[in-house]
Design a protein around this nucleic acid. Structure first.
Lengths: 103, 103
DNA sequence: CTGTATCCACACGGATACTG
DNA sequence: CAGTATCCGTGTGGATACAG
């Protein structure tokens, strides 16, 4: 469910209860195309992570937010980032050949 | 770094300090092909998550384990699973159209 | 047993143009 | 503004055969 090139970027933009319009997301993630942005948003909406609110105006206005469940992912992704950060402190292990033939 | 169809399966097999040979991993994850298994293992090794120990025997014997850093991922993935599990308890939200035109 | 090497299909994502 | 529609290149992964 978190797969897809842009899902995590979208999540990070929306964490903290932030409310963003489609065009704001586009600007916040410059590398994403409209097609991909809408596709991943729709999937996340279908999965219940993202809420989409339509304002029946002209010109159109649509706001995206995380659902409670989506927000609940924040601490977990945080610890994932912390885990990834630890990697830089680690020694680079060499290839290991066991001495003992293992019986 | 966790991308790839089989990385998570491999991690779950190796969590808890388990030591598995190549063929044991193959059997533990029946759907994976040799090519993919070796490819993902090599990537994980390069990333420092997996340790590969070669026994210079005939026939060959190779054992795979998680590094400390790899093991450290366990609690995070656990909370990820818990998060995913919560989803089943949630109501299905309908499409929402804002009443107020936004001013 | 533990891999390599090849070939192939398809899903994924990017670019562009167009619409209500 | 917020999407759809279309085309297309590439990467990822699957199947199979082969090797040390």
């Amino acid at each position: 469910m978190l797969e897809g090139r842009w899902k995590l970027s979208i999540l990070f933009q929306l964490f903290g209860g932030k409310v963003l319009r489609f065009s704001e997301l586009e600007r916040a993630i410059p590398a994403v195309s409209q097609k991909m942005l809408i596709q991943q948003l729709r999937q996340m909406e279908a999965d219940g992570m993202v809420r989409r609110v339509i304002y029946p105006e002209v010109p159109p206005k649509v706001e995206y937010t995380l659902t409670r469940w989506g927000q609940a992912l924040c601490p977990t992704l945080d610890s994932l980032l912390k885990w990834a950060a630890v990697r830089d402190e680690l020694p680079v292990p060499a290839e290991s050949v066991a001495d003992d033939a293992g019986l």
